[in-house]
Nucleic acid binder design. Structure first.
Lengths: 162, 162
DNA sequence: ACGTCTCATATGGGTTCCAGAGCATCGGGC
DNA sequence: GCCCGATGCTCTGGAACCCATATGAGACGT
């Protein structure tokens, strides 16, 4: 066998190893960010799942409790309790829909956002320092990768839930 | 003002925007992976926090319950209940330490790993497809970024906890 | 108008989380 | 060798939580 073929084999192997490293790093990152979430939530008297739901509302906009429950993979009745806590803390407001008066629209109040931002401040500035070491093209590459990975996570979650 | 200066200004602005996009994507990715974890845990009759702890044991190796509790930001008594569930499910074993007979070492049993791997299979293959579109150099860049972000998360968590 | 469906929330039972107490054990001083 | 404080894990009790079911209010088709 020529050096060409074995070189290609090594390249393929190295490539697979890097891919595995990325998947493992992603998983480790996920845990680490969960732990960070946990600490932030603890400071705000919120459960982890409360923060997740709040973030879902911030990202995807106002929606009904049942829609939120579907997104979060939780029972609608559970969502009532979560929304009670978030409402009590002044994080969200429950508006009754005008067209369908059974329906409720959960809306995010931005009042306490500064508080949240401050708690994530350490992580944010660390990320700024990390980003500073990359070129614009590299940053674009990273942003695109994260977006795709999120989409993959979304699909995988949907498959398991459905 | 010359076109050179305004061009530099645009570049700086675009750069800042990309950085913000990355931080937001990271946060969104974090939620998405949490939701994925939640679905996986639901299939295995495990709580989210149980999976987190199991993963911590897998990553950082066998350790005592109290050390694990510190890492996870939980009360030692809470850890007892979590370990009870993990032990009942055959995920871990509690060994009494030989040198210090008060101490307990929590060790991960790998018996059910295949089951876990299968549940994450959808996400894994999606990540493989994503990785296939990058060059080896780009993959290295991504892996390094993820590693650094994890480290940043670890530091930020430690600051909040300490 | 009637029944059926959807939506959010109240209710009850089983579970979980956590602070503090309890028990066993280690290490150091004497 | 023995005591004493410190350490490590687990049990106990009380509060909070999650979820299945039931309930009440309202929308929609016929």
């Amino acid at each position: 066998m020529g050096s060409r073929a074995s070189g290609e084999l090594d390249a393929a192997r190295r490539r697979r190893r890097t891919g595995t490293a990325i998947k493992e790093s992603l998983r480790e990152l996920s845990i680490q960010l969960s732990l960070l979430n946990h600490q932030v939530g603890a400071r705000l008297n919120l459960k982890d799942v409360d923060l997740d739901c709040l973030e879902l509302i911030n990202r995807h906009g106002a929606m009904s409790p049942s829609a939120l429950a579907r997104r979060a993979g939780l029972h609608p009745a559970t969502m009532t309790g979560i929304l009670d806590r978030l409402e009590r803390g002044g994080w969200i407001a429950r508006d009754r829909a005008t067209d369908d008066r059974r329906a409720v629209i959960v809306r995010s109040l931005r009042d306490r956002n500064a508080e949240l931002y401050r708690l994530y401040g350490g992580m944010n500035s660390a990320m700024d320092r990390i980003c500073a070491g990359y070129t614009e093209d590299q940053l674009d590459l990273l942003a695109d990768f994260l977006r795709r990975a999120t989409e993959a996570g979304n699909d995988a979650t949907g498959d398991l839930a459905g």
